[in-house]
Design a protein around this nucleic acid. Structure first.
Lengths: 335, 335
DNA sequence: ATCACAAATGTTATCGGTAACATGATCGAT
DNA sequence: ATCGATCATGTTACCGATAACATTTGTGAT
């Protein structure tokens, strides 16, 4: 594999001149430039980015760490990230933590050892704090996306989970429901907490008591504990509506209901956070609080790149961007 | 950020000894080893993999290039790849070509410039051949997964598309259908061709003429041309069954049918290749030829790693692993 | 006590680039 | 003709690790 010296030799110049041609830096006479380009082509030369990054102390690489790469919400974030990164000449390494802080830590270690320029992370939970401190200690900038982390000061792009949850539950209440249960992700994630808070506030503002037992907590992932739905159905009184805190939970809820022979919305109203992929669902059906996932990605990436490139002077203090979800009312909540 | 010399100095040894400790190579007295480890911890030292890779001429990194990261089929392949890679101490960089050979080429260039040790690729199409030749010219080993590429000799892990398609269509025929249409991906991908061939063979073996016009070709991606379904519905005679060549196409077909007020399977039978994510679909419903996507990933990765590590001697000649799909009969095909 | 060999550690060169500085050529202005 | 500025290119050092070889120390056998 040819290196820069081979090219230089063939073109009859110094490696530095070749470097200038590659990077469009400094002055190079047009004639020499062409000679170098010809030599590069002839040798099928591709610069070695390891060497380049080593000496430049910069890799032009970002890492995106998400808790679940099979969730369309996060793949959409990933697209936003990637598109924005590419526009700014950054690469993206995509990592999947499986909602597991330990696996997340491994990836963060990797980020350090391959010297990424920055990290965008939807943290596994509050346990991610130590992981993030590792980034801090290496002065690698990062941006939180979708989820805040307790005790961590950083740029953050989130949805207004409290508001979205409030509106969804209010919608149910307006429809006459009073016995509304909730299934949410582990409360170690900020979104689960905020959605529960929004749920709670909506209830209380309408004089409905908040019952701890009606909030079931499980993994946000698709392999959630199926029996939770059963448990809710066995409550007395039985809830007439269920608020699922994300898309996968909603689908599981509906499956659980079907399994018991219950129809949506006739026997049980269902609403949820995040879009449930309409392509897979065949027909849009669920009442949801839809989040602008793509923008989560683009904005987070912009913030990160700003930080990476902000040069001297004091770094901008942590910014918090909150995007509003859009409540889309469809059949699953009844009317 | 501390480097290996800082650690060495603090531990009172040479950098080489530190390197030995890090890599568990050579002999190091237990006492010095501990001293070095203490120094590493004290300085919060993380080795620089750029430098390491540069000199070792090896990055312990694989690239996985898929045409559509939002397709659960490919995310499942990705999981298989990642799990296997990690077990063998490789990292995986995940790349998304969007079924676009040009974007694919950019990623392959990136693979070269960051010197990945190998590539697993579900190629965008036959146009990928030139891209792969680039890898050849740099002697970067690669394995094709899911899709073969015309004129490319390499390890390949595919499903038996012809057989799966044959069985699905035969199933429809056995149910009495004779007017069976097909919607498939671009015929520049091997799977589209093979599925069409399987479809064709099933028809012909049962004395049903193959009609070119009944095979509609479009993108495998979720943004397929919606009007194709309409076109099929306007054929005379109107088909009574549709074979969709992948999961997304099937969902689009069903949406198109719903849009026209047609029920599945009463008014139109539908079968397809690949699983349609049962979690999203709420109820398993589609008759499918299910492929062991996870195994696609694990096997491809094993083959690749073998090639990377095979050392001297003649490289193994290209291997072809063909996995059988499993036809799962459900409601969408009627009975 | 001596020797052969393994263990423990160090030295030097190198991977393939680029930053920083140095040098010589070119050029327009006076 | 002279000079400062800009252009064009080269030289040197270094990024942070490891391979390959060199050296010193330790150990057991005779």
């Amino acid at each position: 594999m040819a290196n820069i010296s081979d090219v230089a030799r063939l073109a009859g110049v110094s490696p530095m001149t070749v470097s200038r041609v590659i990077n469009h830096s400094g002055h190079v006479k047009e004639e020499t430039r062409l000679r170098v380009l010809r030599a590069m082509k002839e040798l099928n030369y591709v610069p070695n980015d390891l060497a380049r990054s080593l000496v430049r102390r910069r890799t032009d690489t970002l890492a995106l760490i998400v808790p679940d790469i099979t969730n369309p919400f996060f793949t959409t974030v990933a697209r936003g990230t990637e598109d924005t990164a590419r526009k700014n000449d950054f690469r993206v390494v995509l990592c999947n933590s499986d909602e597991d802080p330990a696996k997340e830590l491994e990836y963060i270690r990797m980020c350090v050892s391959i010297r990424v320029d920055g990290v965008i992370i939807a943290a596994a939970g509050d346990g991610s704090r130590k992981n993030l401190e590792l980034l801090d200690s290496f002065e690698i900038p990062y941006v939180l996306v979708d989820r805040k982390v307790d005790g961590v000061q950083a740029d953050v792009v989130t949805g207004d989970s409290r508001m979205g949850a409030f509106q969804l539950v209010k919608h149910l209440i307006d429809l006459g429901h009073r016995d509304i249960a909730m299934i949410t992700g582990f409360l170690t994630t900020s979104t689960a907490r905020e959605r529960r808070d929004g749920y709670r506030r909506a209830l209380e503002e309408h004089g409905i008591p908040f019952r701890e037992a009606w909030v079931k907590e499980t993994s946000y992932m698709r392999n959630m504990d199926f029996t939770l739905v059963e448990q809710l159905l066995d409550c007395t009184p039985r809830p007439t509506a269920i608020f699922a805190a994300n898309n996968f939970l909603a689908v599981q809820v509906i499956r659980g209901l079907r399994h018991r022979g219950l129809r949506v919305p006739e026997d049980m109203a269902v609403v949820c956070f995040d879009d449930v992929d309409p392509y897979s669902l065949v027909e849009p059906f669920l009442t949801v609080a839809s989040q602008p996932a793509y923008n989560f990605g683009t904005i987070a990436t912009q913030l990160l790149i700003e930080r990476i490139e902000h040069g001297e002077g004091p770094a901008p203090s942590p910014r918090s961007i909150v995007l509003q979800p859009e409540v889309i009312i469809r059949k699953s909540s009844g009317h």
